[in-house]
Design a protein around this nucleic acid. Sequence first.
DNA 1: TATGAATGAGCTTTCATTCAT
DNA 2: CATGAATGAAAGCTCATTCAT
Lengths: 195, 195, 195, 195
Amino acid sequence: MALGFESSDKKLRIIRSAAKVFAQKGFHRAKMEEIAQEADVGKGTVYEYFSSKEQLFFEMLQMGKNFYHDSLTKEVNSEVSLQNKLKKIAYLHLKFIQEYKDFGRVMMQEFLQLGSEMQNYFWKAHEQEITLLSQTFQDGMSQGILRPLDCKVVAQIFHGAVHSMGGPMIFLDEEPDLEQLSTTIIEVFFKGIAK
Amino acid sequence: MALGFESSDKKLRIIRSAAKVFAQKGFHRAKMEEIAQEADVGKGTVYEYFSSKEQLFFEMLQMGKNFYHDSLTKEVNSEVSLQNKLKKIAYLHLKFIQEYKDFGRVMMQEFLQLGSEMQNYFWKAHEQEITLLSQTFQDGMSQGILRPLDCKVVAQIFHGAVHSMGGPMIFLDEEPDLEQLSTTIIEVFFKGIAK
Amino acid sequence: MALGFESSDKKLRIIRSAAKVFAQKGFHRAKMEEIAQEADVGKGTVYEYFSSKEQLFFEMLQMGKNFYHDSLTKEVNSEVSLQNKLKKIAYLHLKFIQEYKDFGRVMMQEFLQLGSEMQNYFWKAHEQEITLLSQTFQDGMSQGILRPLDCKVVAQIFHGAVHSMGGPMIFLDEEPDLEQLSTTIIEVFFKGIAK
Amino acid sequence: MALGFESSDKKLRIIRSAAKVFAQKGFHRAKMEEIAQEADVGKGTVYEYFSSKEQLFFEMLQMGKNFYHDSLTKEVNSEVSLQNKLKKIAYLHLKFIQEYKDFGRVMMQEFLQLGSEMQNYFWKAHEQEITLLSQTFQDGMSQGILRPLDCKVVAQIFHGAVHSMGGPMIFLDEEPDLEQLSTTIIEVFFKGIAK
DNA sequence: TATGAATGAGCTTTCATTCAT
DNA sequence: CATGAATGAAAGCTCATTCAT
């Protein structure tokens, strides 16, 4: 697995290894030694690049988040129809989860382990994401495409709806057809379930 | 906090205490000693009732899950309109999260700590829940109230949409008006966001 | 070796063991594990009684110091002639060093390892000792037995003179006749070396 | 601080740096890296000149000792009166301590950290010093200036008396008038304290 | 049944030392 | 000669679990 970014640089090798091991074992069960071995470096070397286990965990999450965030932002700023844009966002989100399952698992369930300062960092990042979505919906309403609704709530519903598909993918190893899945989500989301 | 179930029985006292301590510290940082103290029993006594820390954690989650599940099932089997039923489900879910914040936090983010056997148990429980919802939607479609859609996906979307509201409540201490919030969710869910 | 106080109490066993191991290896080379083994308890048990290695070191020194201090004080308050009193003090000091060589070694050379707070504690104790001696000399001057001199400096000279004999005993395993040695010291100290 | 010997030579720079760092932190807390930095050389360079941390420590102490020893020997071989000679020795000893406080601290309390072979080296050096003093006293006795006493014991008492003044200077930062202090010491030492 | 003193496996982190450049 | 990135042995401390009482 690991995070797309290929590189021979040692720091990156360690982060990739960390992603893998943290994903398999969770924060506390993961041993620095195993991370080091996986990265094919000595235990001490890890500490040359990261001051502590927590710091390594943090930077690993950060890198993944940035990677995801960048592709999201690019999509939001693209010039396609609202519906296509949202569909693409849903697709990318699920694609990311499918591709980086291990990372997703950690991100979803382990960041409570971080000190509250770092937790805060990621909640702010999440808020930003919601805001980004929010504005997209706001645009839709201004243009008269969407009904007038509480943008932020809508954004949160959207995010939750998409994100909730990740659970079975991650934990039950389901591999749904993402193209079709995102189409359905958008369908439901735009037209509702009522006849 | 603790989980509604009042009892003077020692085992329950320990579970309640466990819920409190696990919620505050997470699985790994929680100490058996603190749980014992909080329950006002000796450390050894905990092991009379639970074979290990993990087992205690598991049973604690299980009890919370059952508590939640029962109220959900009751609602699903009630004889109100589909829309009101779903609204009530959303409301109950959010109410549960609001009431048992600490428990919710653990449930959402710590169960990865469990061995995969026990993790499995909860995923099955979650699947059951989704199936329960699924059937509700299926009924709606059979009755011609809802458009024909993939029931399971709809159920998942619904669950995800509702559940996603829990994050800010748990982690940012937001206390939204649940009555209104569930109304909005249902609104969006039935009619869609498109004009 | 160990410190006179016989006891089957576990805390004391650990302190005695600590005295032995710290003496042989010095503070940093001493391993908690070895101390535990020597005391015939588990590693964790040591931490039941002492919060840290440093704390154990501190309490060990403290106990030795008290043991020594008590016998010194008793002598100072006895009703013998000044000369005999000082001779007894010298004798006791050297006797203590001879008997508890290992402890003496640590006390003389390792307490720098302590945090400054604890270092302070022992310097104050040492000052007290000097003050105690000082008063004895003051009495002698008041009674006209001694020449008028700076009491504190005299006390320090006396202490240093006696104490300096400890080096060879501790580090070169010399075992001089303490009776005679203390007689000589007092002799020199009272009458001077000049003809 | 550092030890008087000015030089631009790299080895000396390292020793001077070592003296500083060892003095501040003690043997075990001192890091080779910090010593290297302070000497403005690379970490590996230190190992070009010294085979190990212990060796560096040893050579550093050795240099300090020689520096002290030389000035002492010069004084012992000078042609002044016995009393003045001893006074000068006391004065030089205390002066050295006052000037090189940090070094004194290490010398007094850290050399236990050395392997026993190196410890031995310094005890022999100390014995030499005592012997040197011993001979001075022997001369005094031969000349009929001093009472017939055990020379070695007298030398040890003298050394201890003088040295004991160092404690407060080093650890309590006292800065006594050394001229007066050494006069008092000699006074007491020659005439005794008795009336 | 209830207890808590005792235990020791297991983990993070440090830092002297090496060696390729 | 000089360097500093890389290393891994070593040690303090924690805490789930046991068991004698």
